[in-house]
Computed example of a mutant assay.
Amino acid sequence: MIGQIIEKEHILDYKIIPAAEDKTYLLKDKLMAAQRLGNEFKSKTTIVFQTEDGPKRIETTVWSLTEHYIQIKSGVLIPLKSIIEVDF
């Protein structure tokens, strides 16, 4: 899995930018499953997203999913078009 591991509390220290390839459509089912895992089982998901400083990786609970964003702890939003990889 690619991406430098960072603590989810430090996401806002980075400028999130769109990934080279928008994988929103391809990852939608995985993200819906990640939201269900987070809400029903409190399970964490590994998410790799693009920043100006390169790909970053976090392990977190996905609280909600909208058409354009995932929401994680403390109301932090990550744009779907910035997500490179999702794994449980």
Results as ranks from 00 to 15, higher is better:
residue 12 L to I: 01
residue 31 L to N: 04
residue 28 K to T: 06
residue 19 A to Y: 11
residue 34 A to W: 06
residue 22 D to H: 13
residue 14 Y to T: 01
residue 37 L to F: 09
residue 11 I to K: 00
residue 20 A to K: 10
residue 32 M to P: 00
residue 15 K to V: 03
residue 36 R to H: 13
residue 34 A to Q: 03
residue 19 A to I: 08
residue 21 E to D: 09
residue 9 E to C: 02
residue 16 I to G: 01
residue 27 L to R: 03
residue 17 I to V: 14
residue 30 K to Y: 12
residue 22 D to R: 07
residue 16 I to H: 02
residue 27 L to I: 09
residue 35 Q to T: 11
residue 22 D to N: 15
residue 4 Q to H: 04
residue 12 L to Y: 03
residue 40 E to Q: 14
residue 15 K to F: 02
residue 6 I to R: 03
residue 5 I to E: 15
residue 9 E to D: 02
residue 3 G to V: 00
residue 13 D to V: 01
residue 18 P to A: 04
residue 13 D to N: 13
residue 19 A to H: 05
residue 8 K to M: 10
residue 10 H to R: 10
residue 39 N to H: 02
residue 5 I to C: 07
residue 19 A to F: 07
residue 35 Q to P: 00
residue 24 T to V: 14
residue 36 R to E: 14
residue 12 L to W: 04
residue 25 Y to F: 09
residue 18 P to V: 04
residue 40 E to P: 02
residue 32 M to V: 14
residue 3 G to T: 01
residue 33 A to M: 15
residue 11 I to D: 01
residue 32 M to D: 05
residue 16 I to P: 00
residue 16 I to C: 03
residue 8 K to E: 15
residue 39 N to V: 03
residue 3 G to F: 10
residue 7 E to R: 13
residue 6 I to C: 09
residue 9 E to K: 15
residue 5 I to L: 13
residue 33 A to E: 11
residue 24 T to R: 12
residue 33 A to P: 02
residue 13 D to M: 05
residue 4 Q to A: 08
residue 13 D to A: 09
residue 39 N to A: 03
residue 10 H to I: 01
residue 21 E to I: 08
residue 12 L to G: 03
residue 6 I to K: 04
residue 31 L to A: 07
residue 10 H to S: 09
residue 29 D to K: 06
residue 18 P to C: 03
residue 17 I to P: 01
residue 32 M to G: 06
residue 7 E to I: 04
residue 8 K to I: 03
residue 21 E to L: 06
residue 5 I to V: 15
residue 18 P to E: 06
residue 6 I to V: 13
residue 28 K to S: 08
residue 11 I to A: 09
residue 33 A to W: 09
